[in-house]
Amino acid sequence: MIRVGLQWIARGACTHPEVMTISGGSLCAVEFPAMVGVIRHPTRGMFLFDTGYDPAFIAATRPFPERLYRWTTPVRIGEDAEWQTWLAAHDIAESEIAGTIISHFHGDHVAGLGNLAHVPVYCARAGLSQLRSSGRFARVRRGLLAALVPPEVDTQARFFEDAPACQLPSAFAPFREARDILGDGSLLAVELPGHCAGHWGLALITEAGQPVLLAADAVWSGQSITQHRPPPRITTALLGDTRRYRQTLDLLSRASKNNGELAILPSHCAASARKFSATGDNDAG
Rank of each mutant, 00 (worst) to 15 (best):
G222Q: 04
Q7I: 01
E94Q: 11
A111I: 08
P232G: 00
P120I: 13
L182E: 05
L168V: 12
F172D: 02
E96W: 00
P74R: 01
L265N: 11
F137R: 07
S129I: 07
I77M: 02
G45E: 13
F159S: 06
L182Q: 11
H268L: 11
T279N: 12
L252C: 08
P231V: 03
V36Q: 08
A59I: 10
L192D: 07
F32R: 08
L131R: 02
C123N: 10
R11W: 02
E66H: 12
F47K: 03
P17D: 08
A203H: 15
H228G: 04
E191S: 03
G127K: 07
K257F: 07
R243N: 15
R176Y: 05
E31H: 11
W71R: 14
H109Q: 13
L68F: 11
R254M: 03
R176G: 06
D241C: 03
G112P: 02
G52K: 05
A93R: 03
I205A: 14
E152P: 00
P55G: 00
T21E: 12
P169K: 00
Q7Y: 10
Q84D: 14
D217P: 01
L204P: 01
A81L: 10
G135F: 03
C28H: 13
Q223A: 07
G78D: 12
T51W: 03
A203Q: 10
L192N: 08
H16P: 00
C123V: 10
V140L: 03
I234Q: 13
A13W: 13
S272A: 15
H118T: 07
A255T: 06
F49Q: 00
A263K: 09
